[in-house]
């Protein structure tokens, strides 16, 4: 940002912070971020490699670790596509149409973000747990939801409901419905309109939403912890495996598993920034046309 040319040097000095303040504030911010954000991530990798690369790889090849990896991938493989379909459908309905009860629908979408993960798990236990509303019926029919895979998938679905929808709704509202209306009036079918007009427009927002949804699905701890039952090799996802190993004082193994999740988090941040950069580039052109 070049300073405005009509301001004299003295004037520029008057709107700039004193040098001492700049140094002090920058120092405080950098030290705070190093202590609170950089150091913890560093510790994960140092802790994971504390006993050498061999021990690190051995910790990841433990049968319990492998089954936790598979379970986490399986849960995300169900939760992310379902919530993507839901997010696109919800955003389409909310952004392109006016209808009664829209505010209530938006509140329901936001709800999982403002509820404690423990409460998210609790509501499903109240429904499907041994003493829950459907508990006796499920026991009679030999269906297990709580302390089993279906329960883990259900709570993961619940906590990741908002991510894709919340990313797409403001984006699609901003873009309006003009282009879709034009396409439909020119004879395109609804699906064709969606695939050729809407999807390219929302591409970057959709990718970002899916990435966030995936990060939360793979990393959820509180809600999954309530319904999982912590059965080793069976219902332990990666975050739960970290907890168990840590509580057993197997710190290297705990950090080895944690390093996988930390890598996922870093990858999520990298993709987020790449997407933001792409989005800025992609949306800067149409905006010029909108101004006219």
């Amino acid at each position: 940002m070049p300073p405005n040319s009509y301001i004299s040097n003295a004037g520029r000095r008057a709107v700039q912070d004193p040098k001492a303040a700049r140094w002090l504030l920058t120092g405080v911010a950098v030290i705070f971020l190093l202590l609170f954000l950089v150091l913890p991530v560093l510790l994960v990798f140092v802790g994971a490699l504390a006993e050498g690369v061999g021990a690190y790889l051995r910790a990841l090849r433990q049968p319990d670790a492998l089954s936790a990896i598979w379970l986490t991938l399986a849960v995300a493989a169900v939760a992310v596509p379902l919530n993507t379909i839901f997010g696109v459908a919800a955003a389409w309905a909310i952004a392109k149409f006016q209808f009664r009860g829209k505010g209530f629908v938006v509140t329901l979408i936001d709800l999982p973000l403002s509820v404690s993960p423990v409460i998210s798990g609790l509501v499903y236990v109240l429904l499907f747990g041994a003493r829950g509303y459907f508990g006796p019926w499920l026991a009679e029919h030999n269906v297990q939801i709580i302390f089993a895979l279906p329960g883990i998938i259900l709570v993961t679905l619940f906590v990741t409901v908002p991510y894709v929808a919340r990313e797409l709704i403001p984006l699609m509202q901003e873009q309006g419905a003009d282009e879709e209306e034009a396409a439909v009036m020119l004879g395109a079918s609804g699906w064709r309109t969606f695939w050729t007009i809407t999807l390219p427009n929302i591409k970057w927002g959709l990718i970002y939403g899916v990435i966030q949804c995936n990060a939360r699905a793979m990393g959820e701890f509180g809600a999954v912890s309530v319904v999982s039952g912590h059965i080793r090799g069976k219902t332990n996802t990666l975050p739960l495996q970290v907890e168990i190993l840590y509580n057993e004082y197997s710190f290297t193994a705990a950090f080895a598993i944690a390093s996988l999740l930390a890598l996922l988090a870093l990858l999520t941040l990298v993709i987020k920034h790449a997407v933001e950069w792409q989005a800025r580039r992609a949306y800067s052109r149409p905006q010029e046309e909108n101004v006219a």
């Binding site: 913890p40 966030q212 975050p239 705990a254 944690a258 999740l261 930390a262 988090a265």
Partner: peptide, 11 residues
């Protein structure tokens, strides 16, 4: 982005 269990153990 960081799973809360990882944050907890690390902190």
């Amino acid at each position: 982005a960081l799973p809360t269990a990882v944050a907890g153990v690390t902190l």
